[in-house]
Simulated scan of single mutants.
Amino acid sequence: MAKPTSDRHQSPFRITCRELVVRPENKKEVPVIREVVREAFHPMPFSTGREWKLVEEIRQSPGYLPSLSLVALCDGMLVGHSIISLIEIEDKKKPHNALVLGPVSILPDFQRRGIGQELIRIGIVAAKRMPLPAMVVVGDPAYYSRFGFEPAVPRNIHMPFGFDEEDYLQVLELKKGALKGVQGVIKFPPSFFDEKGDLL
């Protein structure tokens, strides 16, 4: 498989995929995925520059779900990656197992081609086969609402530590009525934090 490269002078409007394949990642693709995630977030003003590390920490954690870590291949070239992993929503009574979407990474020259949407759509379809009530994401509500995500705070689901990102916290019910009685604070696993305790 060709290693992905990004020609900054190439117009993205000239890039089209004759064949787009979305499937679970394999171990041999880890180095390529690392570079895809780095390049995808490099131009983003909100990027921490550590999204690649978050993906690799999740991959080494108990919350890693191989069937929900997906790659997108454009004519055989790996151009995108998404990961869905396990988290908990904790209330005073008990923890509720749930899923979290992200990061979703597309090489800059292949963005705005619907590749990210296809990764998310296929990931959600696979997630709905699991016996879990919900998936959360922190991202642009205008974008993620198209997949059925809705604001989490009105459902009394909150970010930990009072993060300012609560306006971007959204939740998707994976089965009808599955969120009934599910509320509380998102508990991210240790793989989501650096050595200082900050989210990656």
Rank of each mutant, 00 (worst) to 15 (best):
P133F: 10
F147R: 01
A152S: 02
P108G: 02
G102S: 03
D140G: 05
A142F: 07
M130K: 12
Q117L: 06
V138H: 02
L99N: 09
N97M: 12
L99T: 04
A152C: 00
R146E: 07
F149L: 09
Q111H: 05
R129M: 05
R121Q: 13
G102M: 02
G116N: 06
P154D: 10
R155V: 08
L119K: 10
E165T: 11
S145W: 00
H81V: 06
E88N: 13
F149A: 08
S145G: 15
M130I: 13
D75Y: 03
D91R: 07
A142H: 14
R121H: 12
G114W: 10
A98Y: 03
L101R: 00
A98H: 00
K94H: 12
L107T: 06
G80F: 04
H81K: 07
G80S: 05
L101G: 02
R113S: 00
I157F: 10
H158C: 05
D164I: 07
I84P: 03
L132V: 14
E90H: 08
A142L: 15
V138D: 03
G148I: 05
I124T: 02
I84R: 01
L86W: 13
G162F: 09
D140Y: 04
R146V: 08
D164S: 11
Q117V: 09
L107Y: 08
A127D: 04
V79A: 14
A152V: 00
Y144D: 06
D164L: 09
L99S: 04
M135I: 11
A134L: 14
V137D: 09
L78F: 03
V136S: 02
P160M: 02
G123L: 03
A134P: 05
L132F: 09
G80H: 05
F161Q: 13
H81Q: 01
A126S: 15
I89M: 08
S82H: 04
R129D: 12
P103D: 01
A142R: 14
M135S: 12
A98R: 02
G102V: 00
I157D: 09
N156D: 13
L101F: 03
K94R: 15
V125S: 13
I83K: 07
V100A: 14
V136Y: 01
M159N: 10
Y144H: 08
K92W: 07
V136F: 02
K93I: 12
Q117N: 09
H158R: 12
R121Y: 10
R113L: 06
L78Y: 02
S85A: 13
D164H: 09
R146I: 10
M130C: 06
N156A: 14
M77C: 15
M130L: 15
G102A: 05
G114M: 06
F163R: 14
F161H: 13
E150F: 04
I84D: 00
A98V: 00
A134I: 10
